[in-house]
Computed example of a mutant assay.
Amino acid sequence: MTSNFGFLGCLQYLPERHRLNSSEFNETSGEEELPIPAFVNRVPAKVLPPGVFDKLSYATLVKIGERLKDAKGILVNSFPEVEPYAAEHFSRGRDYPHVYPVGPVLNLTGRTNPGLASAQYENMMKWLDEQPDSSVLFLCFGSMGVFSEPQIKQIAHALELVGFRFIWAIRTNIAGDGDPHEPLPEGFVERTKGRGIVCSWAPQVDILAHKATGGFVSHCGWNSIQESLWYGVPIATWPMYAEQQLNAFNMVKELGLAVEIRLDYVADGDRVTLEIVSADEIATAVRSLMDGDNLVRKKVQEISAVARKAVGDGGSSVVATGDFISDVLGDHF
């Protein structure tokens, strides 16, 4: 699995829930709190993957959960130190396949994109080089993260309220070929000139790796979360689609490794949060995120060191990978 222990816990739970209630979740289920065994806290239904609210997708997720029980083993892209309770839950066995925590599995070589010319990339990195350490806020919402124009204006207003330096990747459509400046408030670019960059695509790994980056407003895709943890950059959660709501809940409520903007925001097909998140709400979260004394920042920096140990000699990921290879070669399945 490319996902984490938390999402695996959700897939383990769904068939059990289905035996008691065979219908998909609906809008009235949103405030229901679920006793998912892999989580310390009860999990609000509203942070489950949006697919559980669709009949066909729900049936598919239940079927995947059922089939996983028949697997000989399951690899997850996580490590026990970042999700200790869930890792312990799956280590107990309990008539479930052996779970191998082989993460963090990351591509840290940086990414190229034809939408960002080499000169633009160089200018962006040069600008970062000129900023103080941990002073830049990075906002990026994945390849499918598209906001309405009113929401973009609220984010822009929040950036003006807080006054932090920033890099903001704006997608105006799924294709990513729109003008990122078009939906911005009039005069925003001029008012933030010198302290902010707006673009349609950003080299996420390179930005997170840079010492000037101090915070990440993210859609909470698991790869993005792991990249942020690896580089010790704290996240403010703004999930959009797939299992990102559950990831956000996991990071904020279970692990204390992120600051909450929203946990249940959805922009996934027909399911779209209509409420506009206000500039004041965004600004409050961002100020907390960028606070150098924030406990979340300290915990994320500790996890950064642990993540590197996990993939080093004798680390948990290396040991789990070795166990998996031994089990395959020894036909222990």
Rank of each mutant, 00 (worst) to 15 (best):
A310V: 11
L8H: 07
K299V: 00
G215S: 09
Q151I: 08
W238L: 12
G322I: 02
T192A: 08
I207W: 09
S78K: 07
G221I: 06
T60I: 14
K211R: 15
P80T: 10
I207Y: 04
K46G: 05
M124A: 11
S23N: 11
E186G: 03
L20Q: 15
T192P: 04
I64W: 14
Q301S: 13
I282Q: 04
A38N: 12
T284E: 14
A87T: 01
K253N: 14
A169V: 12
A307T: 08
A119E: 15
I261V: 15
V266N: 06
A71P: 01
Y85F: 12
A156Y: 05
N41Q: 15
L139S: 12
G163L: 10
K63S: 15
F141L: 15
C140T: 03
G330Q: 02
K46P: 01
N294K: 02
S135K: 07
Y58A: 08
S135Y: 04
A267K: 14
E275M: 04
W230G: 07
D54I: 15
Y265W: 03
P185E: 09
G330T: 06
I36Q: 05
E190D: 11
L14W: 00
R195F: 05
A175W: 00
V136M: 09
D280R: 10
R262H: 07
N294Y: 03
N77G: 04
G232M: 11
I276H: 05
E275G: 10
M124V: 03
A248M: 01
K46F: 00
A87Q: 02
K153C: 03
V277L: 13
A258Q: 11
R297V: 10
L159A: 06
I261P: 06
N247P: 02
G194Q: 09
F216N: 02
L56F: 13
R92G: 03
V217I: 12
S91R: 10
G256M: 07
K72P: 00
E130T: 12
A258H: 09
W222I: 01
V306Q: 14
I155H: 02
F216C: 01
I167Q: 06
G214N: 04
P114A: 14
I207N: 05
H332D: 09
F188S: 06
F333N: 13
E281K: 12
K298W: 03
A279H: 07
P104M: 08
P37Q: 08
Q120M: 03
S134T: 08
M125A: 06
C140W: 00
K193M: 08
A310P: 08
R92Y: 00
V328R: 07
K72S: 15
G163C: 09
Y96T: 00
E227V: 10
V296K: 06
S22C: 00
Q301F: 05
I303E: 03
Y96K: 00
W127N: 07
T213K: 02
G314P: 11
A236I: 03
A236K: 01
T273L: 07
D313N: 09
L68D: 11
A158Q: 03
I174R: 10
P84H: 07
E81V: 05
C199H: 01
Q151Y: 07
P49S: 12
S200C: 08
I276M: 10
L108M: 11
